[in-house]
Simulated scan of single mutants.
Amino acid sequence: MQGRDDGTYPPGAFETGGRRLRVLSGHDVALVNGPVFLVGLFYAVSPWVLGFAGTHHDLAVHDLVVGCAVCLLAGGFTVAPERMTGLSGALGVTGLWMAVSPWVVGEVPGRATAVAGVVLGVLALVLGLVSTVLVRRANRVP
């Protein structure tokens, strides 16, 4: 049987495995993935649900693309959390963009457009910050 010291494993392989187990065993991190997916999903369909897709076509396309990107992040956090831990901060930045994008992309957004963008953006920002904190806590070496 081969062991640690016979050179068959790269340096740090066991530490990486331990880190992976800590991240995967942190159930708190996994609890954030569902709400992140729902925020992304509603952001993607909000132009049609709230009825501003016809009047703000550019913003509707933007919301669809960004919402799908957030859903993909949530899927990545679920499927490969050990590889996606560095992107939890990107969710917070995306949340900031979601909150200001109605005025940047849409220029003169309606009330529903602005409220949806700000509320969902703040939710994404908070979930991104929570995810970042939980990932850092899970990555700490005891």
Score class of each variant (00 low, 15 high):
4 R>D: 10
5 D>P: 00
5 D>C: 09
7 G>C: 10
11 P>W: 03
11 P>D: 15
11 P>G: 05
11 P>N: 11
12 G>C: 10
12 G>W: 07
15 E>T: 05
16 T>S: 10
17 G>D: 15
19 R>E: 15
28 D>C: 02
29 V>P: 00
32 V>R: 01
33 N>H: 14
34 G>E: 12
35 P>F: 02
36 V>N: 08
37 F>C: 13
41 L>Y: 05
42 F>H: 03
43 Y>V: 04
44 A>L: 11
48 W>Y: 14
48 W>P: 09
51 G>K: 07
52 F>I: 12
52 F>A: 03
52 F>Y: 15
54 G>Y: 04
58 D>K: 08
58 D>I: 02
61 V>W: 14
61 V>N: 13
65 V>L: 15
66 V>Q: 13
69 A>K: 02
69 A>N: 08
70 V>F: 06
70 V>W: 03
70 V>S: 06
71 C>V: 10
71 C>A: 12
71 C>W: 00
74 A>E: 01
75 G>M: 08
76 G>S: 08
77 F>V: 10
78 T>M: 12
80 A>W: 11
80 A>L: 13
82 E>M: 06
85 T>W: 09
90 A>P: 05
93 V>S: 10
94 T>H: 03
94 T>R: 05
95 G>L: 09
96 L>D: 08
97 W>E: 15
97 W>Q: 14
98 M>H: 01
98 M>V: 13
105 V>R: 06
107 E>G: 00
107 E>I: 11
110 G>C: 02
111 R>E: 14
114 A>I: 02
120 L>P: 00
120 L>I: 03
121 G>T: 04
121 G>K: 02
122 V>L: 15
122 V>N: 04
122 V>T: 11
123 L>I: 05
124 A>Y: 01
125 L>H: 02
127 L>M: 08
128 G>Q: 12
129 L>C: 14
131 S>I: 06
132 T>C: 05
132 T>E: 15
133 V>Y: 05
133 V>L: 14
134 L>E: 11
139 N>F: 00
140 R>Y: 00
